[in-house]
Design a protein around this nucleic acid. Structure first.
Lengths: 213, 213, 213, 213
DNA sequence: AATGAATGAGTTTTCATTCAT
DNA sequence: TATGAATGAAAACTCATTCAT
């Protein structure tokens, strides 16, 4: 391998590295400050690149935002791939799903912040992303299987729509994390890891009671 | 209903009127655009006053925001006063609470937007509002009574904490409204009045199943 | 004296009191903040009156400034009336004049600040004050007498112009007070009462050496 | 005199040039209008740059002011380097110093205006400039030498502090220039080049009479 | 004689975006 | 591929001044 052969690839690699550094920086910046509060300067310095490079790669602030929003979904969906429900009983699978979701939301705070930001903006951007529905949670599909298995085993009632059930799961895991600051200030909720784990167990109890035949 | 005894107020040069017009305008502006996206100019023209008047009354943009956030809580708490749960059975009372909460959130969209905005900002402002915990929902107290009545009647199990139960109620009502835009785009949820009402019924079913002894 | 009889006079007195309170407040404000730095709001609150009253009495900010500048001269000239030089020997009279001037400047800091402010503005206002030259220091006249007495007594040389000599006196007393802050910071001069008194004695020595035949 | 070795600089996109253009423009603006009266807009157009560039380089208006104040000292001190006193007799050296100081103040009007402005502000800024005492006049050191030479030659008395003597010199040169507008209006002093030169000669006479053994 | 309420016209400051290399 | 230098447009905030009573 001569020294000459490397540069083109290194160049390529650098470009890709810059691009993903920007994306990650944008994700952090937008999730910490919202759409209007985010600063292109800060994205640049977080990413360790110059501002013009960002404009070169993405176009304008809205385009960076759109890319960061999509990235938030990509990252969270990637994480979901790790959850295995097949070997668990339907009831244990539901409980595992709830635990996983709560933990996943808590350890990936960008996701919740980005969703909050986007909904605050009226969904303007997600609506304009082609194929937004393809980033639907894989969990919904797995959940569909779990529900059918439970139904077939006679432990869950039938007629439960997996999307709507997933909305329940998400609701119960999203809100206490998304609203942690106001819950702390107004209700003195001790929002932290253990408290959220406890919430997850209770939520699972509730969801299972609801599913029970 | 008697007329207020006060003399017919002039429309102009009425400090009280100006102040509350600004507050309402600020509430709308901040909830539509978030903290950084809000424009003092727009608050002024929405309120029908000049910008300097706003600065005179409130100080700076952050102070306007703080006042608007508090106002959001005040308004939502005022609305809660109308819900009567005493004459209903414990089970019906829980169902009524859920229906009311969903409807209340839906018809007072400023509240959810302001909470989202504030949580996105890390709760910086709510933390600095003295007596923030005094704006706790009156619903929690009413719920406490309902839970005790149900427990005494043997229909609810004991040991349910009213705050934590209220967090479940709020979670289930908040999320589908707060996240309506992403739910529509990603899961094709038909988020509208009827769908939300249906969600409320299902949520009530679930909560009751959880409470059942 | 009936109660009815009083009001007109009280009114009159109040108006005058208001006017002079405003003038004094303006003098303080302009001398502390300069022409552009002065705030009409602060003049109003210092004077304990409302802003419209100030505009009623004086017209606009420049007019207030002009009145304050004139007032500065009036006040300093009033103080000068107390200095008696007739009973002193010519040499003692010169020394007394220097001591008095230094002390007078130090204890009437508004005067120096107003002069500084006005000169910074290019003298725009003093030039437009009719009869500005009538507020010339009475000290110049008294000094003229002292110089003549000294000359006649053979202790001072002749041909000393009282105005130009007064400029020397003023220079030596003005500068260390006017520039006290930069002298402290740059030359570490311990500018305070005793130091200034010492400067006055040295200045008097110097001026007398210059006058000596 | 050789040409500077540097390559011909471009007129645009030269940070060093922009920075110093801003500094010079700020010096002019602040000395003509004082701290509050100065306008960042005008500094920008005087310097031929845009406003944001100024904020980029300096931070805020106060920081520009501080930089301009320091620049005023730097420029005046640079000018002082040209005065040679070593080859003159002690008496001629004192006279030369006075002539030079008067002329230097007159031909560098920014300096006096900046000092006046800063003292009007209570020295707030000079106090916060680190190492403000390092911009002490080099003249004080040269004067120290002159005084010692005079003393050794038996023509000056001993015990004269160079700083305090320099304060006399500065006083006598500063005041008639700093206060030229009020002196003209109130005392009809014909303040101009020749008059000031005459004042310098008289001041030198006085200072020498004071120094004489 | 007096003032609380209100504002037009600035002024400072910020920020997304582009230029020139 | 990359960036230091620069800016137009707009945002927050201020202040002398006037209105209406």
């Amino acid at each position: 391998m001569t020294e000459k052969a490397a540069p083109p690839r290194a160049r390529k690699r650098d470009a890709e590295r810059s691009r993903s550094a920007i994306l990650q920086a944008a994700l952090e910046e937008f999730s910490e400050h919202g759409h209007s509060g985010a600063r292109v300067d800060r994205i640049a310095s977080r990413a360790g690149v110059s501002k013009p490079l960002i404009y070169d790669y993405f176009g304008d602030k809205d385009a960076i935002y759109a890319a960061a929003l999509k990235e938030a979904y990509v990252q969270i969906r990637e994480g979901e791939g790790t959850l295995q429900l097949d070997m668990l009983s339907p009831e244990e699978a539901v409980r595992a799903l709830v635990r996983f979701t709560m933990d996943h939301f808590r350890t990936n705070p960008w996701f919740i912040s980005m969703l909050n930001t986007e909904n605050l903006r009226g969904g303007e951007t997600i609506r304009s992303i082609r194929g937004a529905d393809e980033i639907q949670s894989v969990l919904v599909e797995r959940l569909r299987t779990v529900l059918r298995r439970g139904e077939e085993a006679g432990v869950f009632r039938d007629g439960i729509d997996p999307v709507e059930f997933y909305v329940f799961v998400a609701s119960l895991c999203y809100f206490p994390i998304s609203n942690m600051h106001t819950l702390r200030a107004v209700f003195h909720c001790p929002v932290d890891g253990p408290w959220l784990e406890q919430r997850a167990e209770e939520a699972a109890d509730m969801l299972l009671a609801y599913l029970r035949a």
